[in-house]
C-alpha cells in the first residue's frame, strides 16, 4: 500500500502525511483524492505541497492562511520551518528544522 496523506479543504495547498513516506508516489485522501510524487522523504504529521507555491505566497490549510512561503516551494516538497513562516511569530524562521528546538537562545546555555 502506498503511503497516504490527507487534504482537508479543496483550496488547501498542503496535505498532512498519515504515514512516513520516502521520495516517490503517495495517495492523497480527503477533499481532492489524487496521486502525487514526493520529491523528498516526509514524516507522518508533516506537510507536503500539493502545488507550486511562490516565495511570499500564502500557504493554505483548513482553507485558511497558515503563514507565507519564505522561498519557492515545488509540488511534492516537504513544507515546514525552512520554507514556511508564520505571519505573526517572528521566531518561527529561526527554529531547528528537524527538532523544532530554538537556535536564537543557544548562547544562554553556558
Amino acid at each position: 500500500m502506498k503511503p497516504r496523506a490527507f487534504q482537508i479543504q479543496p483550496q488547501d495547498s498542503v496535505a498532512t502525511l498519515l504515514d512516513d513516506a520516502a521520495e516517490g508516489a503517495i495517495d492523497i485522501l480527503g477533499a481532492k483524492p489524487q496521486e502525487i510524487r514526493l520529491l523528498e522523504k516526509i514524516e507522518r504529521g508533516h506537510k507536503v505541497a500539493l502545488r507550486d507555491i511562490a516565495a511570499s505566497e500564502a500557504v493554505i490549510k483548513f482553507g485558511v492562511r497558515i503563514g507565507h512561503a519564505t522561498q519557492p516551494i515545488q509540488r511534492g516538497n516537504w513544507v515546514h520551518l525552512h520554507n514556511l513562516a508564520s505571519d505573526l511569530d517572528e521566531r518561527s524562521g529561526s527554529l531547528d528544522l528537524h527538532s523544532g528546538a530554538p537556535t536564537d537562545t543557544a548562547s544562554a546555555y553556558v
Partner: peptide
Amino acid sequence: WSVSPGNFAGGLTTIEEKSL
C-alpha cells in the same frame, strides 16, 4: 506564541496552523 519545539517536530509549522 503558543507553539513549541514538540509541535514543530510533530509537523506543525506555524501558530496559525496549530490554532486551526
